[in-house]
Design a protein around this nucleic acid. Structure first.
Lengths: 316, 316
DNA sequence: CTGTTAGCGCTTTCAA
DNA sequence: TTGAAAGCGCTAACAG
């Protein structure tokens, strides 16, 4: 698969100078139709394609972006990544995918490598523990997803709004004893923001909060919901659909049918298994898309730093 | 994040020639310790790192590999990819991730782009419809996963073995009326091979086959299992855990407790939701790891083409 | 419209 | 042990 031929060979083969070939390659106007035709033909014939490295060296961009996910198997991140890919391909960018495993240290390493590569841009899935210091140098070519940081472009999900949406819906059904299963505040978005929104809503509407915190796993939902049941809740809001699945599993096993389970994420599996659940679509796909668009816009100079928030909506 | 400094600047700053800097950079021996020390210090101070493109142009490899998955959200592919990543990082390779969406055409496009990039190697997640013709040019730097093809390196999962493992286990429990929910033979591995293995096993052991074919979704499992129940099966083998989840859901809903459900893939969610299920771990992680290792070995010349098969095993 | 020329940042002879 | 010089494949002035 070596690309043995160079622009020189093509020039020779079609009897023109290499700059002419270059012009043809870059679709510049000032080439006579016949010459262009001839060159194109040779290029086609020889299956020639110009070396990216060489043009990269000429100051052209390498057309590579990086996507740093925390875990590739997180459904939300997965969905966001899949939404970005076509947008990048379409603009001729190839995405390098890197996993941070929620380690700031690893992000640092990755950025180090990316720097050598003269990468064009980065989409970083944010998580708690990332320092502004290591990111600001990248600000012009970086978009952070799922978290924001002063002086950085970002696309966030509306964590608080999602919780409110669910709470309102429950209130409207005249359900006032509502529990919450979340994750530790160590996690800013899924943890802190959603718990906080729950607390605030309870206070504002004079509801007694019932909170249980654990991990972002179905096991956690399964194990924590009994605590809440002992407080006679009529409904429970889970900080994620994964947790909700765990909670539902417990209720099903105990044959408890009068507790409304709510989740966040609109995971299709939750709906399939427990159609009676309520979930909020946070817009992971839309988030990925927005992040990619924002990055592309930043790269071609048509946009400056910007913090976006993707609205969520109740899933049907 | 522009890498403004060049090897020249470093040379100037440390009062040596650029070739010396180059030598230091490449850890060549013929540099006096003091000089080396001085240069390293400047490099460190200026946060200099050499441009990949430039060295790529000098014939050096760009240290980029591509991973062409069919769908990033397939749990099996996901798991395999995650297993590869660290291996590639460790060897200094950065992986570009591309989705084929099961379209041979798209694979072709991607390979086209990769060629321009002078990519080092490719891991391709195989699917039905790929033509040998478009892949053979890549044979030295390509490993196919989940499918094999003459003249190409590949890592396969033991589809037939997985089915046999399950069937044997059932037979040992004296269960002889066994159904099968699969997907159409259009899909070579999950479809054809697993169905075929089921059929063959039935024939060999004088069992009556009961087959229902649909798609690779939980809905499909849910919808198809009734057909099989009408044939009074005692157990059902599902071509994937996803299907198994659907089947279990139906059984649960109908309160049917005497049908043993088996799946393939060892999906943790299946075990969590329906611990009574039986599943075979096909070794997706091991497969990804094997594919990455094989590719790396091929690239550094320490291995030739090779077809591997990852053995499956019953999950506990 | 087209060819010539001079680099991009790096590695690699070849002399010193 | 070092530096000077010659490219790698390409683009971008600058002349024709």
């Amino acid at each position: 698969m070596q690309n043995r031929l160079t622009i020189n060979d093509i020039a020779r083969l079609s009897g023109v100078g290499k700059s002419t070939v270059s012009r043809v390659l870059n679709n510049e106007g000032n080439v006579s139709p016949q010459t262009r035709e001839r060159v194109l033909q040779v290029i086609e014939q020889e299956h020639f394609s110009p070396s990216k490295s060489a043009r990269a060296m000429r100051g052209f961009s390498d057309k590579i972006v990086a996507i740093i996910v925390s875990r590739l198997d997180s459904p939300s991140e997965n969905q966001a990544v899949r939404a970005m890919l076509p947008l990048f391909y379409q603009q001729g960018y190839d995405p390098i995918v890197l996993e941070s495993q929620f380690s700031a240290e690893r992000v640092k390493e990755h950025l180090q490598v990316l720097k050598q590569r003269n990468i064009d841009g980065v989409v970083l899935f944010g998580f708690t523990g990332l320092s502004a210091q290591m990111l600001t140098p990248w600000k012009d070519k970086l978009v952070m997803l799922a978290r924001d940081m002063p002086g950085l472009s970002s696309v966030c999900y509306d964590d608080a709004g999602a919780v409110q949406l669910l709470m309102q819906k429950l209130l409207a059904q005249n359900i006032r004893s509502i529990g919450f299963i979340g994750v530790s505040a160590h996690d800013t978005t899924t943890g802190q923001r959603r718990s906080e929104a729950y607390r605030a809503f309870c206070q504002e509407h004079h509801l007694t909060p019932h909170i249980a915190l654990g991990e972002l796993t179905y096991q956690s939902g399964f194990e924590l919901i009994p605590q809440l049941l002992s407080r006679k809740i009529q409904a429970v809001i889970c900080a994620s659909d994964t947790i909700a699945i765990g909670a539902q599993k417990y209720l099903q096993q105990q044959q408890i049918r009068d507790v409304q389970v709510c989740g966040i994420g609109n995971n299709p599996l939750l709906h399939f298994l427990f159609p009676e659940s309520l979930s909020v679509e946070l817009g992971y796909g839309a988030g990925g898309e927005a992040a990619a668009k924002q990055l592309l816009a930043q790269l071609d100079g048509s946009a400056t730093l910007q913090q976006l928030m993707i609205p969520g909506q109740l899933a049907v």
